[in-house]
Amino acid sequence: MKLLVTLKRTPQRDARIRISEEGDALDLDNVQFEVNPFDELAVEEALRIKEARGEAEVVVVSVGAEECEQQLVSAMAMGADRAVRVHHDGELDSLQVAKALAAVVEREEPDLVLSGKLAVDDECGQVPAMLAGLLGWPQASQASDIELSEDASGATVVCEVDAGLETVSLALPAVIMADLRLNEPRYASLPGIMKAKKKPIATLGIEELGDLGPARSRVTGFRALEDKPPGIKVGSVEELVQALEEKKLI
């Protein structure tokens, strides 16, 4: 079977993100990047499915400029077999990305698409569900457990919903979005990193993928939350309650 995992290059979790002086962009010059942690869960899950079934191809795909190949290599260092990069240098909105990915899916014809439930940078969490919508495939979000049927025609997925744990069954092909408790990703190992360097990355021009439409959702400015004021000491429980109320925390 073929598993397609979408992934995004996002700033490293502990990085301190600064805003450019003009306030309209982020200053990411000294920031290190990594595979979006939720997408990494999706990669891990794909690898586990591959290992459990003995035979499957794991393809990772990302939309972005050349530097996002580092993240594709990271995923291949974990064990993904090959990568596809849709080349685009610049901003795209979620729907454009979803359309580009849908075009890749139509070319690759995977049995299952796995994604993270959201990207930790913009925290939109839109692309995978849009992709499912564009493809007309069933979807399962915030998955904490995925079990494939023996003949790989369907999957039973446990989703973490507000009310508790929801179990759904999906006919494949489908799109499943990984949540935190789905698994614990493996560490990209040294031989894995070495092997990944030799695995193929196919590059597709975004213009090859049909009309993605205009970008209609744009971030035009950033603001820091009011700089966290220095901590204060309160003198009594009463003052503490008052301060919490002022901050709308209770």
Binding site: L95, E123, G125, G133, S141, C159, D162, A163, M177
Partner: peptide, 21 residues
């Protein structure tokens, strides 16, 4: 909500309209 997180983007794709989360 956990529901709108998943069906609103799907809806956006069906309608071909942008969305803010």
């Amino acid at each position: 909500s956990s529901a709108t997180k998943e069906y609103f983007p799907r809806l956006a794709a069906l309608l071909d309209v942008p969305m803010a989360s």
